[in-house]
Every structure is written in C-alpha cells, then in structure tokens.
Amino acid sequence: MHHYESTGHLLLTPVDREAPARAVRLRELNLGERADAELDAFARRIAQTLDAPHAGVNFVGEERQFFAGLHHAPDAAPSGYPARVLARDHGYCPHVVVRRRALVLEDVRDFARFAGNAVVDGSGIRSYLGAPLTDRLGVVLGTVCAADVVPRRWGPDGLATVKDLAAELAERLQEREDRPA
C-alpha cells in the first residue's frame, strides 16, 4: 500500500505506526540518544565483515534517526553519510524498520522510491544493506546497516551476514538489559 501527501505525491518514507512504542522502548534501554563506543566497534565490525566503507547501528525514533554506532573507513571517500543524526525521512533504515525485514539496494538509483532520497544527493550513497534490530519483546529498535558510494552486489551472502549481525547485536543488547544496575 502506498501513502500519499495531500498534494498527491508518493511519500518516500513509510508511515511508522510503531514509532511511539519504539521511542518508549529506546528510552527504557537508554539507547538512541548518545554515541556508544561498544556500538561504534560493532559498526566497524559490520563494515569489515561486509567490506563496506560505511556502517552503522541506527536507532529510529519518531522524528529522527540516531547512529549510536558509526564507522567510516579511513580511506572512504568523504560522503558525510551517515551523520550521527539524520531526519527520519533521510536514508533507508526507516524502510527496514517499518517493513520489519532486511533491505538490499544494490543501486539505489534503480528504485524511484529510493533514488530521490536526500541521502543520495547529499552524500553520494549508491548501495545499501540493512537488517532490523529487533529486541526480545519484538520491538524493532532500528537497524544494522552498511552502505557504499558505488553500486555493489551484496548477494545472498551479504544478506545472510547482515541478518546474522543484527541477531548477534540483539543478543548483546539483551545481555546489557539483563545486567544488574
């Protein structure tokens, strides 16, 4: 189902009916408001594992996205993406969160819905791979993702890898929650 603005234009960012509950859960877990060295290290691992110049652990709130974990390869072309904070209508992670499924974009320009995204024009991102980060209550908190400034074939192995990384990080976040304060 497509959602349209009152002007009749296709909305590029899907309606997110779970955002209020997600925002509450992110506050309970103390996530999505500050950079996190452990999550930065995990983002670096995502980038290394997928051989991607950019990677992140992104928590999607009601109005914005926050990359609590972020990595740019030292030799990566300066793209400005992702910044720690993005508007909710920028990038591809909000689609992963609403769909509750991984998203593979080998060349974002091949898809009208994604080609017009501000991240393409502002940063030169051309390919994206992301998987939902789902907690033990079934709340999709955000994503683990990788991006590149050139089109690339992530393939079935890339898709399986990003899903495995998301599952691993979900377990780590659960362990964090279970630790005594």
Score class of each variant (00 low, 15 high):
residue 12 L to T: 10
residue 37 A to H: 02
residue 21 A to C: 01
residue 49 T to K: 04
residue 126 R to E: 13
residue 139 V to I: 14
residue 178 D to C: 04
residue 62 E to T: 13
residue 62 E to S: 11
residue 132 P to A: 07
residue 48 Q to W: 03
residue 129 L to V: 00
residue 146 A to H: 04
residue 88 R to S: 06
residue 139 V to D: 12
residue 156 P to V: 01
residue 108 V to M: 14
residue 16 D to C: 07
residue 30 N to D: 12
residue 69 G to E: 09
residue 31 L to I: 02
residue 7 T to E: 01
residue 26 L to T: 02
residue 27 R to H: 05
residue 29 L to F: 00
residue 65 Q to I: 10
residue 124 G to C: 10
residue 145 C to L: 09
residue 110 D to T: 08
residue 67 F to Q: 13
residue 30 N to W: 00
residue 163 K to I: 01
residue 7 T to Y: 02
residue 35 A to L: 03
residue 111 F to A: 15
residue 17 R to P: 02
residue 141 L to M: 04
residue 10 L to R: 11
residue 170 A to G: 11
residue 71 H to I: 10
residue 119 V to C: 09
residue 63 E to G: 11
residue 76 A to P: 08
residue 59 F to Y: 12
residue 164 D to T: 06
residue 7 T to N: 13
residue 133 L to W: 04
residue 147 A to F: 00
residue 25 R to G: 00
residue 67 F to C: 14
residue 68 A to H: 00
residue 177 E to V: 05
residue 53 P to R: 08
residue 124 G to F: 03
residue 113 R to A: 15
residue 1 M to T: 15
residue 92 Y to L: 08
residue 125 I to H: 10
residue 11 L to D: 06
residue 176 R to H: 09
residue 102 A to L: 05
residue 60 V to L: 01
residue 37 A to W: 00
residue 82 P to N: 10
residue 77 A to Q: 10
residue 170 A to N: 08
residue 128 Y to E: 03
residue 120 V to A: 03
residue 120 V to T: 05
residue 131 A to C: 05
residue 73 A to N: 08
residue 55 A to H: 04
residue 33 E to N: 06
residue 36 D to N: 11
residue 133 L to F: 05
